[in-house]
Each structure stands twice: as C-alpha cells, then as structure tokens.
Write a protein that binds this DNA or RNA. Structure first.
Lengths: 187, 187
DNA sequence: CGTAGGTGGCTAATGGCGTTAGCTTTTCAG
DNA sequence: CTGAAAAGCTAACGCCATTAGCCACCTACG
C-alpha cells in the first residue's frame, strides 16, 4: 500500500544541499536529511556509504555546479574580459549560495572522487588565461594567484568576515584590476 | 588525598589547542580534552560554558597569538619592507600551525568575545600601511585586499589545496609583489 | 499470470558525544 | 578549626551515526 519514497543517491544529495543552503554545513546531519526526504535515517545507507561520503558528494556537486556555470560565463570571451567575467561569476555564485561555499572542497585534487572535477576547474582557469601566452610555471603561478584572490574574497565575504558590507563591490573590483595589471605587466 | 588536577580555563584552552594542532579541528571533543587534562568530561564545565564556548576561546587565543607575533615582526619597519614582513609572517605562522588555522575565526568582529582582538589585528594592518598615506575608504580597501591575499593563500595552502607544493614560495612572492605594485600605483 | 530475487524501506540496538543534575571532596579564608 | 566555595566525580538523558536483521515491494523471467 504505502508507496515508496523512491530515493536515489542524487535525490539524497539534492536534499542535503538544500539543507546546507538553508541552515549551513554544521546542520548537515543524516537525521535531518532523512526527515527532509521522508525516510528513516538508516534507509539513507541504501544510497550513500556514510555521512562523510555524503559530504564528499555534496562537495563534488558544488564543484561541478560552479565549473559548469563559470564555463558558460567564460565561453566566447577572451583576455581581460574573460578573466573579469570569471572572477565576477565566482563571487556571484558564492553570494547566491553563501552557506554552500563552506561545503566546497578546498583540495579536490587530493580526493579520488573529486579529482576529475577539480582538474576541470583548474583547466577552465588555464583556458581563460590562454590568450596571455603564459608558459610553463608562469601559467601555474597565474592560476594560483587568481584562485587565491577569488577564494580569499569569497571565503571571507561568505562568512561575514568583512566588518561592514559597505563598498565590498569596490574592493573586489580593485582586486580584479590588481590581478589584471599584474598579469599584463608580466606577459 | 588524591591531589586535584588544578585546572583553569587557560589550561583547558592550552590542551584543546594542542589537540587541534595535532589532530585537527574535527578532533576537538570535550572527551578528548578531558582525557588530555586528566579529568572526567563533565568536570570541564567548571571552567568553560560549553564546547561552543571552548571553540570561541581557541579562536580568540589564535587571533591574539597571531597579532602578537605580527606586531613584533612589523615594529621598527615601514613601507614595503613592513608589508612584506607582515605578509610573510602570516604565511609562516600558518605553515607552523596548519591545523590550527582552521580554528581561527574569520569574522572576529561579529563575536562579542573576539571583537577586541579582531580590531587589534585590523589596526595592525592599518598601521603597517600608514606610510602610504591612504585616506578614508582607500585605507579600508587596501586593508581588505591584503587580508584577501594572505587569508586566501594561507587557507588554501594549510588545507593542502594547491595540487603540488612546488614553487609555492614563488607564488606567494608574486602575490606580495602584486599587492605592493598595486599599492604604489595608487598612492 | 505467477513467482523468485533483488532492492529499498523499516525497527531495534550499540556506542560516542554534549550536557545537566546532584553528590563528594578538597582547599582555604576567617 | 571550621565552614563554605570551588573543583572534582558518577549517573543519566537525548541526539547522532552506524550496523544488523527483517519485511514489502517491484520486476524480470518462466
């Protein structure tokens, strides 16, 4: 009689991600996800291996989501315009999902599950910088510098780390300009 | 007969910080702190209000420790030399205590307990930038930019977020130079 | 149309944790 | 020397993750 919930791993991740968006990573609990999906807690184990696994899946999802959006943003652009678009898309994503950002893996390359997604993101940055003709380690350093800036800003902003929200857009514009000036000065 | 442990709040924080340094923030548990201090778990409540409080105290301690060290570093220097010293001291601290950095509060200004320490750190940055003669919001933006860079780099490095450790010092040097070039260009 | 097996759900139970209550013992001020 | 505050303890509760074992549904195959 009673119809089944019809869960899948993807639906569990969906619910978990909603929960994180609404209440933050600390609130991510199997009990809460089970309640949200209308199932008893142990039933989740039919779809995920553990809470740690679920965290990994959420991180993967976020990373893929970000990379997909940023790719759409960057495609068809080049040079400074592409870099500006990428950096602003990064901030916009984190502003839209501030709680979620804390669930994004900072070291995707060291996780078997997330490695492919991490590489894809790295390659997106490299591709965005292509028109600057950077070679070898110069390209790596430039990628790292960009990542430091976007992550540093997003990390602080999403956790309310800037005292006042006033003029944050200006601060970010300055960071983007600083990065581009530096990039041009080296090319 | 049996001699008392003679705990104090400070000693509890000491033990907790050691634990964090050794095993990471996720391992911070009242049970573990109790074991390390040779006391039963509930006894800790004579010295702290809750686990959350202890986390706040640890964050405060780290922030004060950082500010103290950076102040020693910066005192007696000015201009580019001071900024370079501050930024490198920041990285050095996080390299020495990578796990601990995850326990540092990112929004100290919004916590009653940590606010004073957060302000002190902010003022240290402002003082370090003093010789550039920045006024009003320019000083705020410059402070934010510096914070974004040092936190962004330290955060990624301390969590193993850079694929390879190779050339990380070069990347950081480039970031410092980029920041200084930008600062000079604007002054 | 039926039936066997796999799949997805359930309840019960375990162990670790934070926290509270209430008791005992140490310490030390007067 | 004494009494009370301070600092420890044990017991107990509830929440959580996880495991074991059970049952009902769905489906593929006869």
């Amino acid at each position: 009689m009673a119809v089944r919930a019809g869960l899948t791993t993807a639906k569990v991740v969906d619910a978990a991600l909603e929960l994180v968006d609404e209440q933050g990573v600390e609130a991510l609990t199997l009990a809460a996800v089970a309640a949200r999906t209308g199932v008893a807690t142990p039933s989740l184990y039919k779809h995920i291996g553990s809470l740690g696994d679920l965290r990994g899946l959420i991180g993967l999802r976020v990373m893929e989501d970000m990379t997909r959006r940023f790719t759409e943003t960057v495609v068809g652009r080049s040079g400074d315009e592409a870099v500006r678009a990428l950096m602003h898309a990064y901030r916009a994503y984190v502003q839209e999902h501030p709680k979620r950002y804390a669930a994004a893996p900072m070291d995707p390359l060291h996780d078997e599950l997330q490695r492919a997604a991490g590489l894809k993101f790295m390659e997106l940055i490299l591709a965005t910088l292509r028109s600057y003709g950077l070679e070898g380690s110069d390209a790596i350093h430039a990628t790292r510098r960009l990542r430091v800036i976007v992550h540093g800003f997003a990390s602080i902003e999403s956790s309310g780390g800037f005292g006042l929200p006033e003029g944050l857009g200006d601060t970010y514009d300055q960071l983007v300009r600083m990065y581009l000036d530096d990039l041009r000065g080296k090319s």
